[in-house]
Design a protein around this nucleic acid. Structure first.
Lengths: 332, 332
DNA sequence: TTGAAAGCGCTAACAC
DNA sequence: GTGTTAGCGCTTTCAA
């Protein structure tokens, strides 16, 4: 077994054909190749264990069949399903995906974008950093096809957006709570700088308004378990009377539930809890979490689909607003 | 703004230097370049928004600065932290990582391996498929540096292994249960075909033996919530008397706990539950799950570290056995 | 249907 | 310190 990698030239030589012919059979350009030579070349390829070098072909075709997935943190339970959906669609279409964790840092986001651009990645699926400043110029410079997931962002060359109807989701959820008899519903949210949060808050407010409820409390923080705990403690300490908590996401809800239980408050009897996202954990808490379901897998899948359609067929900008669904379990 | 991408040649021309000089400044080969020309070239690069094409340089250097991460399923809560650890180390060293989901299919595993090889990925971090047949030949043909995480596999060109001391983990955990007074501990495991499971079962058995306990029941299934529910139902239905359950992983434990609670059995009073892995959810269940902690993030991080050291400095085979740690919460 | 040859954008000798 | 140039492994005209 010689160590030097066997190249298309070697195969051409051994099979006594030209490199062009080998290239055609490798890439399945049938119709240009007689069955006879095709078989012959294939045999030689098999025999010598030839593995085509896609870096070399990428250099001439300008296609790498690789996508970038830029998210805050794959270990945040919100993202694995999105990643899986995206990877599934990508794989089906013959693409690979490079995963990048930004921790919501604009700097890291830009670094990744540069790396990916240099590696001639063909497109990006991104959940943009929350702390968005105007790095619009940067995106313009990079000029890669982008599909945005879950977050909005005003930049060029965006080929599509996958959004979730956060307003309606919150509206439906809070209305459900009200219909169940909860009257004093506080909301523990993430920061309003984040568009997603704003929409959920707006839905909450509209639901209260439509049901003629005056009581309204919104605490702003971040999407984390810890913030859920901290916020609910603040509320308890402040002696506000409340009988329901609408949480900006499930993580917050689970954190809040935990503290509530420690304080011997009955869920859903004394306090109703509503989450948002429907992450895996919600099914497992006790009581099980009632929540607004985000179709995460589908978000990733559709994002990849739009991106690939845009890359391969230059399809025009497409926006998909996926509906949420209320998952009624035990906490409301 | 002209559309054609600006290349190293353009920069060389504009800056009135050679391409070699541009290449040297781009790659920070200081000491070969006078500060004066360096500045000059940098200015031209900036002005024309030059982005080097790493595909072209990869073709000549044979380095892509890209790693593959092959796992069963990123949406299985066990893997995101591993992925994050691996990506963090990779990023620090200037690498990107391509994530591949195999669903434990040997066929998909091979397909990914081929794609990655063609793309000249420099190394692989892999949790091998459970259903391993002898596709040893395939790995040999591919001949990529591989670091194995959590699973054993007898193949060539493995540059390292990250293992967890499953035997000792199980031993410590079960001993802890016994010391707390549990006498009839059943084990709900995954399949013994999987090496990880075998070690955990062995640890369970050894602990019983060392404490002179005769009672021993092991149910084999898969690592899932559903199997946990199913298995505990079987045990309950069979009227076996038991006061403790050692679960092959946390998912199983959480499933089992759920059914136990539905059956009004007190945890940890009537039945003690011990998990394995310490996934995020365990902190959130009620009661909180006592479990054996797998250092997942570190597993990913160390895997990437070994792989990169092997690639860059040709360091020799290295095996790391990470210790588990018993996380005492409320379920035992 | 096949082959010859140019060239994708870059790096690395080697020469100056 | 800097420039010249061959060549990485492939695709793609164009000609035969």
């Amino acid at each position: 077994m010689n160590n030097r990698k066997v190249t298309i030239k070697d195969i051409a030589k051994y099979a006594k054909v030209s490199t062009a012919t080998v290239s055609n059979v490798v890439n399945g350009k049938t119709g240009k190749i007689s069955e006879e030579t095709r078989i012959k070349v294939l045999k030689v390829i098999e025999k010598h264990n030839y593995i085509p070098n896609r870096i070399a072909s990428s250099l001439v075709t300008k296609k790498t069949k690789t996508l970038g997935l830029i998210i805050p943190d794959i270990s945040n339970p919100f993202f694995p399903e999105i990643a899986r959906g995206a990877e599934d669609k990508a794989n089906k279409a013959g693409y690979n995906v490079i995963v990048c964790n930004t921790d919501n840092s604009v700097k890291k986001e830009e670094e990744y974008l540069s790396m990916l651009k240099e590696k001639m990645i063909e497109g990006i699926i991104m959940t943009a950093s929350e702390n968005k400043e105007d790095n619009t110029d940067f995106y313009k410079k990079i000029s890669l096809p982008i599909v945005l997931v879950d977050r909005d962002l005003n930049i060029d060359n965006v080929r599509g957006r996958i959004l979730v109807d956060n307003f309606m989701g919150a509206y439906k959820g809070v209305s459900h709570m009200i219909n169940r008899g909860y009257k004093k519903i506080v909301m523990i949210s993430s920061s309003t700088k984040d568009n997603t949060s704003s929409r959920r808050i707006a839905g909450y407010e509209k639901a209260l308004e439509d049901h003629k409820i005056d009581f309204k409390v919104v605490l702003e923080g971040v999407y984390s378990l810890e913030w859920g705990k901290e916020a609910i403690k603040k509320i308890i300490d402040s002696n506000i009377e409340f009988d329901g908590v609408f949480c900006g996401n499930d993580l917050i809800a689970i954190g809040a539930m935990d503290v509530l239980k420690d304080n011997k408050m009955g869920i859903p009897k004394d306090v109703g809890i509503l989450g948002f996202d429907d992450i895996y954990l919600g099914e497992i808490t006790s009581p099980k979490l009632t929540t607004i379901k985000q179709p995460n897998y589908m978000m990733g899948y559709k994002a990849a689909e739009i991106l690939i359609d845009s890359i391969e067929r230059n399809e025009k900008y497409k926006e998909i607003i996926l509906d949420t669904e209320i998952v009624i379990r035990e906490s409301v």
